[in-house]
Design a protein around this nucleic acid. Structure first.
Length: 438
DNA sequence: AAGTCGGGGCG
DNA sequence: CGCCCAGACTT
C-alpha cells in the first residue's frame, strides 16, 4: 500500500464517518464566524463539555463582535470565571476591538488579518478560516497531532515547533477538494471521540485498516511527547477577614495586578509563607508564625486584622505552580489598636530572616552545581532572592498597591474569582467556617 | 527553545 | 489520587 493510497483512504473514510457521527454542538448550529471564533478560543486547552455552558452564556451576553468590543472588561472576565487561562478573555475582547476598528465589525477572511488578531495563533487561524469560510487551511491542535502521529506513525516529538509545521503540511495535503470545513472538524472529532489519548477505540475507528500506528502496535506509545516538568510548590497563607462595624457581614478581597498570573482577577488576600529554597518544598508553616506573618502583611497593606485560627486548607494547581493554601479566619480590628504594629514589625523581621536563609541555601546549592562560579556570583544570587519575594510584602501599600474591597455575598456576581477563591468564599458565606475558634 | 498561563477528567 | 490534556504569548 502506497502513501498516496493511505492518504486517500484516510480522507475519504474519515469524512464519511464524520457526516454520520458529528456531534450537535451550539457553535455548529449556525455558520457564524463570530461563534466559530469564540468557540475556538474557549476550546483551547478546554474540553467540549466544559465549554458548552460558557459558550451559550457568553453569546447570550455578547451576541456580536460589537457587543463584545463595547462591553466592560469586568463583565467579560466574569463570563470567563472558572474557565481558566484568563488572558484568552482579555485577548478576545481586544481582538474584537481590532475587528471593529480595522474590519468594520466583520470577521476578516484574509489569513494574515486573522492571524494578526490577539490570541489567534497558527491553530486558531486555521480553524477559523476552514470552519467559518471553508478555506483549505490546516488546523492542527493536539487532537490532530495525536491522530496523524498514529495513523502515519510519526515519531517526532509533538512538543517541538518543527513537528507542528510538519503536521500542518501533512494536514493540508489531506483536505479533500472543497471540504475543508467538514474535514478539519472530522479530524478533531476523531481525536476527541475515537483516537483518544489513553485508550483509543481502534475497533470502531473508520480508518483503522490502514493506520500504521495500530498495525505496528504503537497506538499506545504515540504520539511521542516530552513530559512537562512538575510544578513548583508554594505554601501560602490566606486571610479570610471578617468585617466588623460598618463592614459586618463582609469579607476583605483584593484585585490582582493587570498582568501576570490570574491578571485582574479578585482573590482573598494571601502571602507566600516563605521564599522557597531552590527545588525544595517548603511544607506547611506552624499556625503561630503563620498568623503573625499574615497580620503583618495585612498591616503593611493598611489593614488591622487579628488572625483567630485555621479555617481550612485548599490547593490550587497551575501548570507551573501549585499553591498549598492555609486559610486563616481573621477579624477586623480598630486601626488604633497598638498591639498590631508590633506584630507587624516582628513578622516582617521573621520574614526577612527566612528569606535571607533561603537565599543563602539557594546560592550554596547553585555554587555546588557549578563550582566555577565565584563567591561574587553567590552574593548576587542571595541579593536577588531577597529583593524579589512575594509582592504582597514588598508592596508599600496604599498608592501603588492592589485594590482592596469589602464585599458581601451579593457582590460575588459582579467580581470574577479563580475557582479556589470562589469555593472558599461560597463556603464562608454559607457559614462553613463559623466554628473556627481563637 | 523554554517558561508562563487554569482547570477538569480519567484509570 | 497520581497522571494526563496542550495553544498563544513572552522572553
Amino acid at each position: 500500500m502506497g502513501l498516496m493510497e493511505q492518504k486517500q483512504h484516510f480522507s475519504v473514510n474519515l469524512l464519511d464517518w464524520y457526516m454520520i457521527n458529528r456531534r450537535d454542538l451550539p457553535w455548529r448550529r449556525h455558520n457564524n464566524p463570530y461563534f466559530t471564533w469564540v468557540s475556538e478560543i474557549m476550546l483551547q486547552q478546554t474540553r467540549v463539555d466544559t465549554v458548552i455552558p460558557y459558550f451559550n452564556r457568553f453569546i447570550a451576553n455578547f451576541p456580536t463582535v460589537q457587543a463584545l468590543a463595547e462591553a466592560p472588561e469586568e463583565d467579560v472576565l466574569k463570563n470567563w470565571e472558572g474557565l481558566g487561562y484568563y488572558s484568552r478573555a482579555r485577548n478576545l475582547q481586544a481582538a474584537a476591538q481590532q475587528v471593529m476598528e480595522l474590519h468594520g465589525g466583520e470577521m476578516p477572511q484574509d489569513k494574515q488579518a486573522v492571524f494578526a488578531l490577539k490570541g489567534v495563533g497558527p491553530y486558531t487561524a486555521g480553524a477559523i478560516l476552514s470552519i467559518a469560510f471553508n478555506q483549505p487551511q490546516p488546523a492542527v491542535d493536539g487532537n490532530v497531532m495525536r491522530v496523524l502521529s498514529r495513523y502515519f506513525l510519526i515519531d517526532e516529538d509533538i512538543m517541538k515547533g518543527s513537528t507542528r509545521v510538519l503536521m500542518e503540511e501533512l494536514a493540508g495535503e489531506l483536505i479533500p477538494e472543497g471540504r475543508a470545513r467538514d474535514f478539519n472538524q472530522a479530524l478533531m472529532e476523531l481525536g476527541a471521540l475515537v483516537c483518544t489519548p489513553k485508550a483509543p477505540h481502534c475497533l470502531t475507528c473508520p480508518v483503522m485498516e490502514q493506520c500504521s500506528g495500530r498495525i505496528a502496535g504503537r497506538e499506545l506509545t504515540l504520539p511521542v511527547k516530552t513530559k512537562a516538568k512538575p510544578p513548583r510548590p508554594e505554601q501560602r497563607l490566606v486571610a479570610l477577614v471578617e468585617g466588623r462595624g460598618e463592614h459586618r457581614g463582609q469579607v476583605l478581597v483584593r484585585q490582582r495586578p493587570a498582568t501576570g498570573l490570574l491578571a485582574r482577577m479578585w482573590e482573598l488576600p494571601h502571602v507566600l509563607a516563605a521564599p522557597a529554597a531552590a527545588g525544595k518544598a517548603a511544607g506547611p508553616l506552624a499556625d503561630e508564625p503563620a498568623m503573625a506573618l499574615l497580620a503583618g502583611s495585612l498591616w503593611a497593606e493598611g489593614f488591622a486584622a487579628r488572625p483567630e485560627g485555621l479555617a481550612t486548607h485548599a490547593e490550587h494547581v497551575f501548570s507551573h505552580i501549585v499553591w498549598n493554601l492555609q486559610v486563616y479566619k481573621c477579624t477586623e480590628q480598630d486601626q488604633g489598636s497598638d498591639e498590631l504594629p508590633l506584630i507587624a514589625a516582628e513578622a516582617r523581621a521573621a520574614y526577612d530572616a527566612a528569606a535571607q536563609a533561603a537565599a543563602k541555601e539557594m546560592a550554596a546549592s547553585m555554587l555546588e552545581a557549578s563550582p566555577s562560579a565565584s563567591d561574587l556570583d553567590g552574593e548576587i544570587l542571595a541579593e536577588a532572592a531577597v529583593i524579589s519575594p512575594d509582592s504582597a510584602l514588598t508592596q508599600t501599600g496604599k498608592g501603588d498597591g492592589l485594590i482592596y474591597r469589602w464585599i458581601g455575598p451579593k457582590d460575588m456576581d459582579k467580581l470574577a474569582f479563580p475557582n479556589v477563591f470562589l469555593k472558599l468564599l461560597s463556603s464562608y458565606f454559607a457559614g462553613a467556617y463559623d466554628e473556627v475558634k481563637e
